[in-house]
């Protein structure tokens, strides 16, 4: 006995999948939606799905604003982040090199005296200034970096644009040189962090 066919109400937008959403086979050949690679099943099990009217999908108007993006950050004083922390520069440099090799877009930045700190009074009252934040859209990586650096404060925020997220206040950074340097490698050059600063347009001073 065949189960009675029931109507499944779904948002309109899902009826016509975009080309990008279709499974790809071979060199750019996309299967039409009706074709299935799965073996046919004898029994038809269809469910009726009740959908609220406000869930009914309607094509989004093209001028609708993009959703704000989530940014994760770690923050500490500039002396710790840029001058004292032995492996920090190596890690960032290594990550940037890897992104270059794998043609991945940069998703992490260093922000000196970020403007977004104003949103976090609980953090600013515990922070020695000037402060430096490591900001990324990759929350997993920030969790890892928190584990590595430990002596940092972590939070997250949303911003409409990258410029807004990475805006900073102008500040002069000065670090005293150590009296005696015993390591078999030179101390990191002042300004090593510049390749990791946000693009010029997102600097609050621009």
């Amino acid at each position: 006995m065949v189960a009675p066919a029931t109507l499944s109400l779904r948002p309109f937008a899902t009826l016509a999948p975009s080309r990008a959403a279709l499974p790809r086979v071979g060199a750019g050949f996309a299967l039409p939606p009706a074709v299935s690679c799965q073996p046919r099943r004898r029994r038809l099990s269809l469910r009726a799905v009740a959908v609220d009217s406000d869930q009914q999908g309607s094509p989004e108007p093209p001028d609708q604003e993009a959703k704000p993006k989530k940014y994760h950050f770690l923050v500490a004083n500039a002396k710790f982040m840029l001058d004292e922390e032995e492996h920090f520069q190596e890690q960032l440099k290594e990550k940037l090199r890897l992104y270059g090799e794998r043609e991945k877009e940069q998703d992490f930045w260093l922000v000196v005296e970020p403007k977004f700190l104003d949103r976090f009074p609980n953090i600013t009252k515990r922070l020695k200034r000037p402060a430096v934040a490591l900001v990324s859209t990759d929350g997993n990586w920030i969790t890892f970096m928190k584990l590595r650096l430990d002596r940092v404060l972590a939070e997250q925020f949303e911003a409409e644009t990258l410029e807004e997220a990475l805006a900073s206040n102008p500040v002069d950074l000065k670090f005293d040189k150590p009296e005696k340097w015993t390591a078999p490698y030179p101390k990191y050059e002042y300004g090593w962090w510049e390749p990791f600063l946000p693009p010029k347009s997102s600097n609050g001073t621009a």
Binding site: E94, N140, T143, F144
Partner: peptide
């Protein structure tokens, strides 16, 4: 933390 660590190890810098 462990998920974040796993991702970092998988990256294999």
């Amino acid at each position: 933390e462990f998920d974040a660590l796993l991702q970092e190890f998988k990256t294999d810098y």
